[in-house]
Amino acid sequence: MSCWQTVQDYALRSIGIGERLLPRDDFTLCQQFTLIGSGMIWNVYFGLLALLAGFFLATALALGKASPNRALRKPAEWFIFVFRGSPLFIQFFFAYFLFLSLKGVSSIFDPFTSAWLGALAVLFLNTAAYSGEIFFGALLSIPRGDLEAADAYGFSGWKKFRKITWPTMLRLAWPAYTNEAIFLFHATTLVYFSGFPAWRQKGDALYYASYFADKTFNPFIPYPILAMYFILVTLTIVGVFGLVNRHLNRHLPAERRMRMRVRPTLLR
């Protein structure tokens, strides 16, 4: 079977298009590249949607945690504490079994027991908590002068938030947020190892990589392939977030710009 044929059969295998059966023996390098790449569709799906949705909840959480109103502050603090203080792996397990028991209560929860929605919900809440803490830190370090200047110009309420507070918060938080995005994409590999079933063997990249490693007893081929794909994803994130960072800092003189760290620090 030619490599092109393999690509046609397996490139969309993880979303159920193409050949149903996974290869069972005589694994070729081409099959491994194609199937692990096919699994990456799920990693990108989970990462991208959780990141986009989490961004808005994170902003709300940061504002809640910084709010002087106790009724807003306490829930935000607890939410962030619970999701940052416990392992994501345990959160996945707990959520999966929670959804399983809720399934008996109402059929609304049926889709939550499959990974595409259930795991996405957990990842969304988790990344919202981590990003919320980052945004909260940034919110506290907005220079007082900026806010005073906004007051002096007559900005208030929504307009002040939209034009001054929020962009400055994002600008300050961006390097750490980039790091969080990288971690989130890495965390998506946990999904199919934590209770959520891979229905009809439609899994993510790590699922297929470990399938090959189990079948061939040779971890030295599938895992480096997986590593290569993830390094590509990481580089893409760094690139895209770097562009956004440049946009956020465009009004500053060159020497005051927040430089993106080439080597992001461990911030989780």
């Binding site: 790590l206 470990s210 895992y223």
Partner: peptide, 12 residues
């Protein structure tokens, strides 16, 4: 280790 998920390293 920065660029690759840690769980992949564990399994590897």
């Amino acid at each position: 280790v920065r660029g690759v998920p840690d769980i992949a390293f564990f399994l590897f």
